[in-house]
């Protein structure tokens, strides 16, 4: 299980970095989404994954070695929510920029960089 998830994390990071390096703003945003999902998986993975046992069982205390650690789940949930907010914002920004300039090309984003 861990091996598969580790490979998946790696693949997501690779895809994310590849997409970040493209010239289109939309692809850049897709890259950000990949990276943020890869990071969430990484947090999950690094904090230890237990197969088939939830964090809480019917409100009763169980043997702590058998149940999953709830903290990384809470962390990842928070991170996903923050990621959602950021992605909404980036998409809105991209849309506004596209409306204003009609381009999706990152190479056009240097009008303000002349000394």
């Amino acid at each position: 299980m861990e091996i598969i998830l580790a490979i998946l994390t790696g693949v997501l990071y690779t895809a994310g970095v590849y997409m970040l390096l493209r010239r289109s703003i939309l692809k850049f945003i897709i890259g950000i989404i990949f990276l943020s999902n890869a990071t969430n998986l990484l947090v999950f993975l690094a904090a230890g994954i237990v197969q088939g046992s939830p964090a809480f069982v019917d409100g009763k205390a169980a043997d702590s070695s058998l149940i999953a650690d709830p903290l990384p789940q809470a962390l990842v949930l928070t991170a996903i929510v923050i990621g959602l907010g950021i992605i909404v914002f980036t998409l809105a920004l991209k849309y506004k920029y596209f409306q204003l300039t009609g381009t999706d090309d990152l190479d056009q984003v240097k009008q303000t960089d002349k000394p």
Partner: peptide, 10 residues
């Protein structure tokens, strides 16, 4: 976030 996850894991 990645650093934080690894730190928690360790």
């Amino acid at each position: 976030l990645a650093g934080l996850g690894l730190l928690y894991g360790k």
